[in-house]
Amino acid sequence: MTAYTATVTVRLKEGVLDPEAETTRRALERLGFELGGLRSADQFEIDLDADDEGSARERVTEMTERLLANPTLHDYEVHIDQR
């Protein structure tokens, strides 16, 4: 078994309105910053032991599809590092 840390990034699908990001963008502009756009995402770090990177990825992908992301709203990326 090898120790891994999986980093899961969950973000809204393109075209899905993100009112919080829009509010944050406006607040940055009020602070005097210039920016072209702002997107927000959730990031989860999951520590786990697995036989290899592939099985770690498989388990984390299932976690993401069953809970961390909502397929109606989100796309996601899974990144695996040895710990």
């Binding site: 309105l17 993100d18 009112p19 909502n70 109606t72 709203l73």
Partner: peptide, 17 residues
């Protein structure tokens, strides 16, 4: 109910935030 897929779609953040 939507999160459980009893019905399709999702209810998410209001446009007003």
């Amino acid at each position: 109910g939507c999160e459980a897929s009893l019905t399709p779609g999702a209810f998410t953040r209001n446009r007003s935030a």
